[in-house]
């Protein structure tokens, strides 16, 4: 499905990120259109996670520009509290708040940050929880849930803010293989509904199934950017071929 004639939601231009003297991102260009699913692949340490974190203001950047919804996310005047409401993020280690129940975790942002009506948010939360099959765990604490359940709750928590884009940072990397599926199914469901997403993952089968485009990064540079079928069957660069070979037995 080609979504490249959709409106551009996120545009990254010549993004540079350095830690001290080490260059982590070296001139990344990317346009994400509304409804598009970009899967970011690459060897570990290549800067995939850093790229996502830059989009959410969790990392400072040293050069280039990021435009979200036509507004620049660079400089001291960015209203991150407002922007982050539109950019949902899910972390590798769930990062649910351990001192709150599931429902308190979900309601915190919508009620305290977005100042929405409790009843309305509650209805939405209940619906979302049902969708991910966890409506009976509303009053549990995170420590009482399995990893897969925690990650599904973390996705619901981000979704309940009604974001325009979702960022997934290796969200199945800490999970047992059996639990990976339940989380990936939720993300696949979101893709079908037309959610714009950027996904960092090591699940190749999933990447192929969910992605509109694959962004392959190595040493902070975009090595390859192509449709999944093309990328997995006929990678253009040698680096991508090497990378894909690791996953073959």
């Amino acid at each position: 499905m080609n979504k490249e004639n959709h409106q551009v939601l996120l545009e990254i231009k010549d993004l540079h990120k350095e830690y001290d003297t080490r260059t982590v991102l070296d001139g990344i260009h990317l346009r994400v259109h509304k409804g598009e699913v970009i899967v970011v692949l690459g060897p570990s340490g290549c800067g995939k996670s850093t790229l996502l974190r830059c989009l959410n203001g969790l990392e400072s950047i040293q050069g280039g520009d990021i435009q979200f919804d036509g507004e620049s996310l660079i400089g001291p005047n960015v209203d991150w509290q407002k922007t982050r409401q539109k950019i949902g993020m899910v972390f590798q280690n769930y990062e649910l708040f351990p001192h709150m129940t599931v429902i308190e975790n979900i309601l915190l942002g919508p009620i305290k940050v977005q100042k929405r009506e409790k009843k309305e948010v509650m209805d939405q939360a209940t619906q979302l929880l049902e969708k991910v099959g966890l409506s009976d765990r509303k009053d549990s604490y995170p420590r009482q849930l399995s990893g897969g359940q925690k990650q599904r709750i973390a996705i619901v928590r981000a979704l309940c803010m009604n974001p325009e884009i979702m960022l997934f940072d290796e969200v199945t990397a800490a999970l047992d293989p059996e639990m990976v599926r339940e989380v990936l199914d939720v993300i696949l469901g979101l893709a079908k509904q037309g959610m714009t997403m950027m996904i960092v993952t090591h699940e190749m089968g999933f990447a192929q199934a969910v992605a509109d485009r694959i962004l392959f990064i190595d040493e902070g540079k975009v090595c390859e950017m192509s449709e999944p079928k093309e990328f997995f069957t006929n990678p253009k660069t040698e680096r991508a071929q090497q990378f894909l070979n690791i996953f073959q037995f």
Partner: peptide, 16 residues
């Protein structure tokens, strides 16, 4: 630190 980032990512202010 990741808990703090998790809080920031849902748009909480420093005081919140």
């Amino acid at each position: 630190k990741t808990q703090i980032e998790s809080g920031l990512s849902i748009g909480l202010s420093q005081m919140q």
